[in-house]
Amino acid sequence: MSDYYETLGVPRDATSDQIKKAYRKLAMKYHPDVADDAASAEKFKEIGEAYAVLSDDKKRQMYDLGGDPLRGGGGPGMGGFGFPGGAQGFDVGGLFDAMFGAQNSRGPRSRVRKGQDALVRLNLTLAEAAFGTTKPIRVDTAVLCPSCSGRGAADGGEPVTCTTCHGAGDVQTVQRSFLGDIRTVQPCPSCRGYGTVIPHPCGECSGEGRVRSHRTINVKIPAGVSTGNRVHLDSQGEVGPGGGPAGDLYVELSVSPHPVFKREGDNLEMVARLPMTAAALGTEVWVDTLEAEVDGTLPEDARVQLVVPAGTQSGARLVIAGRGVPRLRGAGRGELGVTLLVQTPEGLDERQRELLRQLAEARGESRPEATVSRGANPKGFFSRLKDAFAD
């Protein structure tokens, strides 16, 4: 009988960590996949026997007292790493599982699993995005099978225990080698790891417990949303396999451009044309608001009166507070900005021309000279009016 401590190269008072570390180092060196000569194979078997004894506190105590658990004196059933057949039939797979923490069995996996989340896209008008709405959407997704209610079995049947793996979900295969029996664990081929089989699958879902279907969902859109925002609908996604709980549904929003209003954050911007005379003398005009496009809007909310001061210049921006977009997070609304485009009269008759000439003479503008305002920045003005000039 060889000395197990010498075989592993550790002192007799070595700790369990020292023994495991020494064994790992030697096992990697003499493993049959690395060294294929007969001497290495024999050495690998010796270090395996030594580790089997010294890594077990009871076997090590027996060995230190002069016994050998692998060759008698260890009690029935303790030969060969605790398996029948003695040292010549030890389980190399079990030894490596113990050394590296692998598990011999994963157990049966459930047929019932949660479904995946789903994503759909929805287009909105600017008014719908600003003030909120409820829109129906059509979703193509997995739903609970109406025939078997998710069980997967026909005629009210139920899954039965697999006769191949006896419900374990895994099967163990044994391969003989000169080192002994090498055992591997893999999913059961009969039940695919479920541990159960369905003798008579549902004809509509083929045992899946769910089917593809179209359904319509009413989605409530909160006021103040914008392009890129998502509405989260809990448990409205795909039903899981085996009739498992549904995932979530996400509705991604896209807002279409408006022919009159442009949104900038919580503000609305628009351009209004105004005759030159009205801009010079000052006036009051009615402006349609975005609320005019919402059904059921009161007349006082559909229009708002805008006061234009005398001498207003083209490009001036007047503000109407509280007529912008409701804030998505928080109270209140943005503002409505109205940029005025002062229009020069066209198609004048002779009397109108004479009146304008008299006005020009009275103001000393019969032969005016163009002036340049130093430091003026017309960028904002042209930015606001570029769409208007394109008309």
Rank of each mutant, 00 (worst) to 15 (best):
A127C: 06
E204Q: 11
V197C: 02
H166C: 07
G195W: 01
R113T: 06
A102Y: 11
P201H: 03
R192V: 02
R183Y: 07
A168C: 00
C202K: 04
H166R: 11
P159Y: 15
P187V: 04
P201T: 03
Q186W: 14
C165K: 06
F100A: 00
S190W: 06
R138E: 00
P136N: 07
G195R: 03
T125M: 14
S190L: 06
N104Q: 14
G157P: 01
N104M: 03
E204T: 11
V174Y: 00
R111A: 10
S177H: 11
C162I: 00
T141I: 07
I137R: 05
C205A: 09
G107P: 02
V225C: 12
A98S: 15
D155E: 14
V219D: 12
K114A: 08
P189S: 11
T216G: 00
P199C: 07
R113C: 02
P108K: 07
R151G: 02
E128W: 04
S147P: 01
S147C: 13
P201S: 03
G180M: 04
C145P: 04
G167F: 03
V185L: 07
T164D: 12
R151I: 01
R106A: 15
A168R: 08
N104P: 12
G193I: 12
V185I: 07
R111H: 10
R212V: 03
A98V: 02
G203Y: 08
Q175K: 15
S226C: 04
A142R: 10
L95F: 05
L119V: 13
T164I: 00
N123F: 02
C188S: 09
A153N: 08
V174L: 06
R121S: 04
D117H: 14
R121K: 05
L122I: 10
G167D: 15
A154H: 08
V174P: 00
R111E: 02
S226L: 01
T164H: 12
G167I: 12
K220M: 09
P187R: 03
V225W: 09
D117C: 14
A168Q: 07
C165E: 05
V197W: 00
G167T: 13
P189V: 03
H214L: 10
C188M: 04
F131I: 13
R192P: 00
R192C: 03
R183I: 10
L179H: 14
V219E: 15
V211D: 01
D140G: 11
L179T: 08
I198E: 10
F96P: 01
M99V: 12
I182S: 01
S226I: 12
G152H: 11
V219R: 08
D97R: 08
D170W: 12
T141L: 06
